[in-house]
Design a protein around this nucleic acid. Structure first.
Lengths: 141, 141
DNA sequence: ACAAATTGTTAGGCTTGCCTTACAATGACT
DNA sequence: AGTCATTGTAAGGCAAGCCTAACAATTTGT
């Protein structure tokens, strides 16, 4: 079901999802600003996402997401969050770099790897002493 | 010093480096087989790497690496190894998936993130009980 | 040494993803 | 309603990366 998307299209989808959830709608120009690309590029991306039936969209039309699109976006965001937690809370990177790194890796990891990161997060939450020990180790170097 | 390269060019560089170190020479066709791309694509990539002064190469010529090229390749390989260790020994993925994942992420992470992964590896080697605990946790789920 | 196989290059094509420029549609203000 | 700013689209261009097909150079085998 989950068709493979390019990193770029996943980025667009993610932004659309987040915007709709926050403000209940998105305009092409919002996406363009968020991703720092031209409005023309957004236009193209929307066309491609609509072709793949991940969003509902027609010329000058309101943007909405299909179920398929939502599912896909949620999966990407889930990966993002697991990675962000890992890099920030476990590896001790600052939020900025953790976020940037998560943004790139989220398009790469498989379902299986996501599960591992999620497990690691759960493990860390129930056993915070292990990560503490690692951070101490880093400081002492 | 370290000029930015695309993931693709880093892959070529890595293969060239590994081949030369193993067999003392590389041919375009070796690279083509290793990366599963056409010989034509290799030709283009070699031209681009030579332009960037990472390899020494001319028409029908032997391929050798410049100091700059070696340094860059070694850095990528260092990232690869740190990631491979992480995914295989710490996260418990099988070697195959650990390798594939490392291959993609190696092009993404910063020097800083590399250092973290390296530290985690050292930490894990001196304190194997922490990772053991995590693996146990995974098994019990 | 010469034919056959292998290897490397070139040319031309395709897709993705970006850009700019110019134009079309929409919205907001008076 | 008319004007102006904003927003969206279309057209045309560019680079990276890949491809195939045809051709050139090199190597191999006898």
């Amino acid at each position: 079901m989950q068709e493979k998307l390019t990193s770029s299209l996943e980025d667009y989808l993610e932004v659309i999802y987040n915007f709709i959830n926050k403000n209940s709608s998105v305009r092409a120009v919002d996406i363009s600003r968020e991703l720092s690309v031209s409005r023309a590029s957004v236009s193209e991306a929307l066309k491609r996402l609509a072709e793949k039936k991940l969003i509902n969209y027609g010329r000058y039309d309101v943007i909405s997401m299909t179920e398929e699109g939502k599912k896909h976006a949620e999966k990407v965001i889930e990966k993002h969050n697991a990675l962000q937690y890992f890099f920030e809370e476990i590896m001790g990177l600052d939020g900025e770099e953790a976020g940037q790194t998560a943004c790139k890796i989220e398009h790469i990891i498989s379902e299986n790897v996501l599960e591992k990161f999620t497990a690691l997060k759960d493990f860390h939450k129930t056993n915070p002493e292990y990560a503490e020990e690692f951070k101490k180790y880093c400081r002492e170097k």
